[in-house]
């Protein structure tokens, strides 16, 4: 499960979640900005999902196998549509996590975990 690294629009909840459940899910932190485009494609093609702070790295869901899971996290819900629409076209499973003004997620950790573990 890829967790894209970002320099801005980052959310502590993502880090806490990934650390807390690293024994159950094989999270791989990836800084796509350090990879060539060929490496980005290869890395994306070899994963079954992407979870983390919403951003441009989610464009790489274009290169993931169909029926992968896509879980962007953001406090700006309109941003999810960038990725939900693309996910729909490709046939990925999509579940966004909306953080409210206090940083609390719209889904329970169990719900997110269940969705990620199916992948």
């Amino acid at each position: 499960m890829i967790v894209p690294l970002r320099n801005n629009r980052t959310f502590e909840w993502v880090d806490r979640f990934a650390q807390k459940y690293s024994h159950r899910i094989n999270f791989q932190l990836v800084d796509f900005s350090k990879l060539t485009i060929a490496e980005q494609i290869k890395t994306s093609a070899n994963t079954r999902g992407m979870f983390g702070c919403e951003g441009a790295a989610f464009a790489n869901i274009l290169f993931m196998q169909g029926n992968s899971c896509v879980v962007p996290v953001s406090n700006e819900p309109y941003r999810f549509i960038f990725h939900s629409s693309l996910a729909k076209y490709i046939g990925h499973r999509f579940t966004p996590v909306h953080l409210d003004s206090s940083g609390s997620p719209s889904l329970t950790e169990d719900d997110v975990l269940r969705f990620l573990e199916v992948s």
Binding site: L62, F63, M64, Q65, I90
Partner: peptide
Amino acid sequence: WLSEFRLQFCPS
């Protein structure tokens, strides 16, 4: 057309 693009560039 998106599928055509993926057929060209996605390893899987």
